[in-house]
Simulated scan of single mutants.
Amino acid sequence: MSLMRNEILERLRSGKHLQVALDFLEIRDALGVARQVADLGVILEAGTPLVKAEGIQGLLALRSLGDNIVVADTKTADAGDVEAEIAWRGKANIMTVLGAMDDSTVESAVRRARELGIVVQVDLIGVKDVVRRAEELLSLGVDIVGLHIGLDVQRKRGVTVADMREEIRYIGKKTILSVAGGLNPKSIAELMDLPVSIFVVGGAITRSQEPRKVAEEIVNILGRSTILASGD
Rank of each mutant, 00 (worst) to 15 (best):
T76S: 11
R63V: 00
V153I: 05
R133I: 01
E45W: 03
L22R: 08
V120W: 12
E136F: 06
I198S: 09
S225F: 11
E190C: 05
V127H: 01
S225H: 07
V97T: 14
N68L: 13
L50R: 10
V159Q: 00
L228E: 15
K186T: 02
S2W: 05
S225Y: 05
Q121V: 02
E136C: 12
D67R: 06
M95S: 03
S208V: 13
A84F: 03
A21M: 06
D81I: 01
L18H: 09
V219T: 10
L18D: 12
D232G: 09
A229N: 14
W88S: 11
K213L: 02
M164L: 09
I221T: 09
R133G: 12
V122M: 04
H148E: 02
L50G: 03
S208C: 10
G141T: 13
L194P: 10
Q154E: 06
Q36P: 00
M192T: 15
A79I: 15
P195R: 10
A46N: 04
N93G: 09
L25S: 04
V122A: 13
K186G: 02
N93F: 04
G231N: 07
I27A: 05
S197Y: 05
L124Y: 04
A229H: 13
A61L: 11
I205Q: 14
I8F: 07
V70Q: 02
A113Y: 14
I221C: 02
I27Y: 01
K16T: 13
G146Y: 03
R114E: 08
L44D: 12
R112I: 07
G80F: 12
